[in-house]
């Protein structure tokens, strides 16, 4: 077996196992940490594909950014000893059906697609190319989505500030009360 295959299996196994753990864990911070592992493994896959920019972005944004924010908000709102309730059988059944449906859909799509073998060496994506196409106004340029996302983020930031200013602290729950 080639080395790449082993690594691929390893990463996939990590993604699957930790994804399952993420949704089944009853402690919220552990779930967040399992999610972190899933995201890091995904970026490992990207590294394997030699798609380094996406891998680094995955690490920065998801692992370094979003998970940190999730953990940070968990720190602010919940206490160590807090556990989730067991979900009822109705929920279990419905979520099982939903995830099964999703899984079947993905598997059908993947099996349906003809993966053609290629002898080409994976090429490194040049940073200049990414930078230029991000700011290009050509047909395949990304300047419009880039700007739209910036405006969205700006709106989100302003909203966050407004929420934080208007009685944010008064409504926030201290970790202390859940200590029992």
């Amino acid at each position: 077996m080639a080395f790449n295959q082993i690594m691929f299996i390893l990463f996939s196994a990590m993604i699957i196992v930790f994804s399952v753990l993420t949704v089944t864990s009853r402690k919220i911070l552990r779930a967040a940490i399992y999610l972190l592992f899933v995201l890091v493994s995904t970026s490992g896959l990207y590294f394997m594909l030699n798609y380094q920019f996406l891998a680094a972005v995955q690490l920065t944004l998801y692992a370094g950014g979003i998970v940190v924010l999730i953990i940070f908000s968990i720190l602010l709102t919940s206490h160590l000893s807090k556990k989730f309730e067991h979900s009822g059988w109705k929920k279990n059944i419905f979520s099982a059906i939903a995830s099964l449906a999703g899984a079947i859909l993905s598997i059908i799509t993947i099996l349906d697609y003809k993966f053609s073998a290629t002898s080409e060496v994976a090429k490194e994506v040049d940073m200049r190319l990414i930078g230029k196409s991000l700011l290009s106004v050509d047909y395949d340029g990304y300047v419009l989505p880039f700007e739209v996302i910036s405006i969205l983020l700006l709106a989100a930031m302003i909203a966050a500030i407004v929420v934080a200013k208007n009685g944010g602290p008064a409504k926030a729950q201290s970790p202390l009360i859940n200590q029992k």
């Binding site: 602290p169 008064a170 729950q173 201290s174 970790p175 202390l176 009360i177 029992k180």
Partner: peptide
């Protein structure tokens, strides 16, 4: 325990005692 939490006023909930 539910009862106890409800009885605490908002101000007291805010305090983090160290």
């Amino acid at each position: 325990m539910e009862e106890k939490v409800k009885n605490i006023t908002t101000d007291e909930q805010q305090e983090y005692v160290i």
